[in-house]
Design a protein around this nucleic acid. Structure first.
Length: 153
DNA sequence: GCCAACGTTGGC
DNA sequence: GCCAACGTTGGC
């Protein structure tokens, strides 16, 4: 089982939005970066745990967790001409973009801000903390996950 | 709103 | 295949 961190802008889609859905699950679509796409297509597996990160907001940070309920499959938003994520280069026969489905797991009682993450020495290597990092899907090690989960209490 | 950092595109 | 130009991300 692998831990992940998925970024989302809460104004677009927040952990509360996920929680409020009838089935509390949703395709994680619209990823349009090849490195992140490769993770979604090849490495994110059923049962993996996702840290739900809120970006471009005040303050940014980790809001809770979700679980992967469906592994990589072609991102249908790329086929939808009315979607903001439409990409005519991606076809049913040769899809370029992938999504996974995630299900709400829990909202942290304590929202862990980016500033908090930054001051923990053991988290220094987290991809999210590296300068200029923009990757929206990143791996989180077991050790890092443990620390984050402890912080959330 | 600013701007550093980075990914992608496209001309050559 | 190089690389400049451009667009986007995301913290501040």
């Amino acid at each position: 089982m692998q831990y992940w961190l998925f970024k989302s802008e809460p104004l677009t889609f927040s952990i509360d939005d996920l929680n409020a859905l009838p089935k509390q699950n949703e395709p994680w679509d619209g990823v349009r970066n090849f490195q992140a796409r490769n993770f979604l297509r090849d490495e994110v597996k059923l049962g993996d745990v996702v840290f739900f990160y809120h970006s471009s907001c005040t303050p940014p940070g980790i809001a809770g967790t979700a679980t992967v309920v469906r592994a990589g499959y072609p991102d249908i938003s790329a086929f939808d001409i009315n979607s903001r994520y439409y990409d005519p280069r991606s076809t049913q026969e040769k899809p370029i973009w992938y999504s996974v489905d995630v299900k709400f797991s829990k909202k942290f009682h304590h929202f862990i801000t980016l500033a908090e993450l930054k001051i923990i020495p053991q988290l220094k290597k987290m991809t999210i903390l590296k300068r200029g990092n923009r990757l929206s899907i990143t791996k989180v090690s077991n050790d890092e996950a443990k620390i984050i989960l402890a912080l959330a209490k």
